[in-house]
Design a binder for these strands. Structure first.
Length: 763
DNA sequence: TCTATCTTTGTTTTT
DNA sequence: CAAAGATAGA
């Protein structure tokens, strides 16, 4: 035990060894949060206070769950497989599989990712002849998910006007459609489990009696439903150990409620509140930047990080003329870091939105530097993989209409809109799935559709005793997907991806502990598993702690769940030492020696859709805080005067966040730009401007009262802005100026009192 | 019914 | 700039 607890600081030690009572740990960035959480679990088990089966540990990302399991198995000589450590969604999936009957779901229910959900909604609207201009599918999706995140069914949602009443009605119909097809969306996984446990007292009491210790990571990210879910699991007696950081709450957009931290403190009568403020990650200047920035937020629980490390290097800031040059600068800096001995994988390039990665990727590719992109297009979201998955879904659950529609005519088999219309009519008439409705379609359409059904049934028959990876292979061959892409010009990559699916299946099978030769449809090894998966206790079927997943889920179902819930963390080229590219969101929880935060411009970061309201802006600021605190030794920030977005050049102002950083910690690298065309051409302008940038031609046109497009100006009332466009000339010149937080203004250049703005420079 | 081509439209973040 | 959707012609 000694070795378990040594090297913990007093606060960490106190947190790890708290008594079995509700506890809230306010853990700042880099304060050893994960360490405290895992050591706590290990300590509880080692001191015999609880058995591994009595632990429920919840995280938000699969990455975090895996990390926790890995650390735990290095700390304790126990098999972590049976332990309940996972994401909210993963754990709920597990519960629903085990109790599918009580939950009113087919055993092979399938999980819709957001793409699937949106197309299901579009399909619903179409079938109901609802005007999707008036009721945009996307809005309906947010409406539904928002309601579910609050724990509300359609009947529970209050609607005060016709418009919202329609949304409620559609919400209800959407649920009906999902139920008919045997599919659940992300929010439904949680809500269904919540309802199941609320309704079913014996079941609830069983799990309450079992999980004496519930530990929650990233508690600030819980939404109301998740919080209530935790309350339900906790019951009256269980110890909830919540770890979180209100300053790192960046998921309010999907319902996360920081207020849960305060609610938790109050409702659970938390007497054990511990703050971890010692930072072990970042050098002083970096931490100062983070602290100063986040101090601009109101409504904080209050916490200030400190470090024993020295000031270290200042934060370097660079202003580029274009996004392309920004990327090139990043690469030059990264190169010199590498020359100085830095490891590539310890350098991260962060951006606010995925679209920004393209320019950087291009530059990295040209420079021949290995890199790895996280997130973005994920493996299981690629079109060809989606098709393959749809075939697998139909084999597992033929009533999934989304899957049916995706591949019924892909590759083409002469089943067009008319046949499907007939089929949909039949399905609606009998209230059954499209697959089941096929026999009711007569004529030629009936024959071709029947052929498709035969195909799926043939695939099932051929694979009924095969292990998962062979099942996938047979599916690929029989579906005609491979042949289809062979005939396509750019199909080679797609075929490669499809072949990878076989390896993915094999990997999944070995990692999850399914026997590698076990048939994919049945519960393999179930006969040999020590103890049955489901035990009957007091007349209730419950999930046994030691039973591995396969006992309640067939390998195929499990694999499909995996595809939806994990989407393949883009493991591409793992192992190679490469630069790390990712959004700020996906960087949460990670740390790097050197970090580049890019695209720090008004409208991008903070994002224009968020900066309108105070709450949104504060979330953006927390996001920036997360970004800064990822860095250990070196931190770079950059922004650009121009940027391509939606195929056109945009002129953004530098981010307001620069004004919220402490000058002493910063070093501005960019050359002065204010008088660049009045003679003082220096450094960055020594190189010729890129061709094709449409502002360049205008930049040498001095006819517009001395102003040019792209220039930063200052206005008495609106503050700083960037000239986006100039119309007219001479005494008639008017300019569209982007004043960032004050919006776009059209000003007469001969009347408005504008001043040129100098960029600060101290290096 | 299929394919090629045009038009339109992009929430930014993720389980 | 792309991807998704709509339209026209084969």
């Amino acid at each position: 035990m000694q070795n378990l607890l040594h090297n913990l600081n007093p606060e960490q030690l106190a947190a790890v060894t708290l008594p079995a009572q509700p506890a809230l740990i306010l853990a700042g960035a880099g304060s050893g949060k994960t360490r405290v959480l895992t050591t706590r679990i290990a300590w509880l088990i080692q001191t015999g206070q609880v058995s591994p089966a009595g632990i429920l540990a919840v995280t938000f990302t699969n990455k975090a769950a895996k990390e926790m399991i890995a650390r735990l198995s290095s700390m304790l000589p126990i098999n972590t497989r049976g332990m309940w450590i996972g994401t909210f969604h993963g754990l709920c999936n597990r519960l629903l599989r085990a109790h599918h009957r009580d939950a009113g779901l087919p055993q092979t229910f399938q999980i819709l990712d957001s793409q699937d959900q949106l197309s299901a909604i579009k399909r619903l609207l179409k079938s109901l002849n609802v005007d999707d201009e008036k009721y945009p599918p996307r809005n309906l999706m947010y409406f539904i998910n928002g309601a579910k995140d609050q724990g509300l069914r359609a009947k529970d949602v209050e609607a005060n006007d016709d418009y919202n009443r329609k949304f409620v009605e559609l919400y209800d119909l959407y649920d009906t459609q999902c139920q008919r097809e045997g599919v659940v969306d992300f929010a439904e996984l949680l809500l269904r489990t919540y309802e199941l446990l609320t309704r079913n007292q014996p079941l609830r009491e069983h799990y309450q009696a079992r999980f004496r210790h519930i530990l929650v990571d990233e508690f600030q990210d819980t939404n109301n439903l998740q919080y209530n879910w935790l309350k339900l699991m906790a019951g009256q007696h269980n110890a909830v150990f919540a770890v979180g950081d209100d300053d790192q709450s960046i998921y309010a957009f999907r319902g996360a409620n920081v207020g849960n931290m305060i609610a938790f403190e109050r409702e659970f009568h938390v007497e054990n509140l511990i703050k971890l403020e010692q930072n072990y990650r970042s050098h002083g200047h970096i931490l100062d930047a983070a602290n100063t920035l986040i101090a601009n937020n109101s409504r904080r629980l209050g916490k200030n990080l400190r470090t024993d490390a020295g000031h270290g290097e200042p934060v370097r800031i660079y202003e580029a003329e274009s996004d392309i040059r920004e990327a090139n600068w990043i690469i030059e800096e990264a190169k010199s870091l590498i020359n100085e001995g830095a490891t590539r994988s310890e350098i991260a390039i962060l951006y606010r939105s995925n679209a920004q990665s393209r320019v950087i990727e291009h530059a990295l590719f040209t420079a021949g530097i290995p890199y790895r992109v996280y997130g973005g297009q994920r493996y299981f979201e690629r079109a060809e993989i989606k098709h393959a998955i749809a075939y697998l879904q139909l084999m597992d659950n033929p009533h999934n209409d989304s899957a049916f529609l995706r591949v019924v005519n892909f590759p083409t088999r002469g089943i067009g809109a008319r046949s499907l219309e007939q089929l949909q009519d039949a399905a609606r008439q009998y209230g059954i799935s499209m697959y089941a409705a096929v026999p009711y379609v007569t004529g030629k359409a009936g024959t071709t559709l029947g052929g498709f059904v035969k195909l799926i049934e043939g695939m099932r028959f051929e694979t009924q005793n095969l292990p998962l990876q062979e099942l996938v292979q047979v599916m690929l061959d029989m579906s005609g997907l491979i042949t289809h892409y062979q005939n396509e010009k750019e199909g080679a990559d797609r075929i490669e991806n499809l072949e990878q699916l076989v390896s993915a299946a094999m990997l999944f099978v070995s990692e999850e502990g399914f026997g590698i030769d076990a048939p994919a449809f049945l519960g393999p090894k179930s006969a040999e598993v020590a103890g049955p998966a489901l035990t009957i206790a007091d007349g209730v079927e419950v999930l046994d702690a030691d039973a591995p997943l396969p006992a309640v889920m067939s390998p195929l179902s499990a694999f499909l769940s995996h595809a939806s819930l994990e989407a393949g963390d883009n493991q591409a080229q793992a192992g190679q030492d490469a630069l790390q590219l990712m959004t700020v969101h996906s960087a949460k929880g990670l740390e790097f020696d050197a970090v580049f935060i890019t695209g720090l411009e008004e409208g991008l970061f903070p994002h224009e859709n968020s900066a309108q309201e105070e709450a949104g802006l504060e979330e953006e600021r927390r996001l920036m805080y997360v970004a800064i605190t990822r860095a250990k030794k070196r931190l770079y920030m950059s922004f650009s005067q121009t940027r391509m977005l939606h195929g056109q050049t945009r002129y953004n102002m530098k981010s307001r966040f620069f004004d919220e950083l402490p000058d002493e910690a910063l070093k501005w690298l960019s050359p002065k730009v204010q008088h660049r065309w009045f003679g003082q051409r220096k450094s960055a302008w020594d190189e010729p401007p890129e061709s094709g940038a449409n502002n360049i031609a205008q930049s040498f046109n001095r006819d517009n009262a001395g102003w040019r497009v792209g220039e930063t100006v200052s206005h008495a009332k609106f503050g700083e802005g960037v000239i986006v466009n100039i119309e007219g000339s001479g005494t008639n010149s008017r300019a569209h100026i982007n004043f960032g937080r004050h919006g776009m203004k059209l000003l007469d250049l001969n009347i408005a009192k504008l001043e040129k703005v100098a960029t600060r420079l101290n290096g």
